[in-house]
Simulated scan of single mutants.
Amino acid sequence: MSVISVESNNIEVFPVRNAKQLDIFIRLPRLIYSHFPDYIPPLDFEETSLLHPKKSAFFRYGTAQYFLAYKDNKPVGRISAQVDPNALRQWKEPIGLFGALDAIDDAEVVQQLINAASQWLRKHGMEKIRGPYTLNVNSEAGTMVKGQKDPPMIAMPWHPEYLGKHIESSGLSKVMDLVSYQMIMGDKARKAHKIPSGLKMGSGRLGNITTRKLNMKEISRDGEILRQLYNDAWNNTWGFVPLTPTEMSVLIRDLKSMLRPENYVLVEQNKMPVAVALVIPNIYDLSKNIGPTPSLLGWAKIGYRVLRHQIQSARVILLGISHSIRDTAMGALMPSLVIDELFNRGELLSYKMIELGWILEDNKGMRNLIERIVPEPCKVHRIFEAKLHY
């Protein structure tokens, strides 16, 4: 196993080469963040699905290398470096990615990890480094710079406050913030969300607008509708990379047991899909007080909670409005109608809180709509970038 970065102050960075090292890589955040009272580790199977080369959808088309940092022979940090051909085609720039960056409060550890990732990306012909993305743009994104004390949310990474500062001191600069909002369900939020009087989908002026739920017997078909509409809606926005059929199939595989028909909002105009939203249950509610590695009894409790749908919170992860109506009056109204539909399903979904995110900080239209209900973001995740010097 060769050393990738230069040894400094007893810090060494090694590429992950075997199963034992991969296991350390996957579990490392739990080891180094365990003393933070606000950190709640995700379930091991979630992290394995996200990062293991045999489980992750990314490795079916992308290339990546994992690295571990050691200080005084103890693992103290990790990082991934990856080349995503889908991102290269979309961005038309040789931008390599980094992700899964977690470390102790040591600026030099972070510096050496970023050096290792940068060196690997240079060898693969990249001219810029951008991230963190774990492992691609459509998965976990950004370093948390605000919201550490808020409840954890599915597919939203947690980081201590120092990490973003250490990334900047390593020579990377902010390129975009991703913001999230917590919408507390109930009458107060419903009253704050106002749509023009007399407008109701399926009647009057909106007689040709209908909505439907997820068809569990045709979940793959509905997933493909969601994928195509999402890609159509967000094409040409900053950092967008199309969601692939493989990624959608893996998403469905991982979420199918938790989804109910009400979690899927499909809006059709004259029976043609024009808007979509997917609300995913917060798996942290299922694993509460059980821990990242459940026992048989722990798994039984999770299974019972799934069957009883004992979930208090959820996240809107995919929301899109078709280009066919985006620049019309109907397109401007559609996000409000989708949110209104979520309120209408309140009794069926029974969530006390729905997190809306992440949203690009410069998406003023969406932010203005949400901030009528929720004035301030609850969480901010930051994307960094730098040129790679040869």
Rank of each mutant, 00 (worst) to 15 (best):
I195F: 04
I225N: 12
I219M: 02
E224P: 08
S220R: 07
I154T: 12
V179Q: 11
D187Y: 03
R212Q: 14
I184H: 09
I209G: 02
K188Y: 02
P152M: 13
G204L: 08
P151L: 06
E161N: 07
L178K: 14
S170L: 08
L163S: 08
K146Y: 14
G142M: 13
G147F: 01
S197P: 10
S170M: 13
R221E: 11
M153P: 11
L172D: 10
Y181G: 12
P152G: 01
H159R: 06
L163F: 02
H166G: 00
R221K: 10
V145F: 12
N215G: 03
P196W: 01
D150E: 15
N231V: 03
G198T: 06
G202P: 02
Y162Q: 02
M183C: 12
W234C: 06
Y162T: 15
R190C: 03
M185D: 00
L214C: 00
D187F: 11
M144C: 03
Y181M: 06
E161H: 10
G147V: 03
K200C: 06
M201V: 08
N215E: 04
K146N: 15
R221T: 10
G186F: 13
L172G: 10
D232R: 06
N215V: 09
D232G: 02
K165R: 05
S180R: 14
R227I: 05
L226R: 01
P157Y: 00
L226N: 03
T143H: 00
I219G: 05
R190Y: 15
T143S: 07
T143C: 12
A155N: 06
A189R: 05
R212D: 12
G223W: 04
T143L: 11
M144P: 03
L226D: 09
L199W: 00
V175I: 05
S173G: 09
M183G: 08
I154H: 00
A192H: 08
G164W: 01
V175R: 02
P157Q: 00
D222K: 08
S197E: 09
Q148Y: 07
K217V: 14
H159T: 13
K149Q: 06
P152F: 15
G186I: 12
K217W: 11
I184L: 13
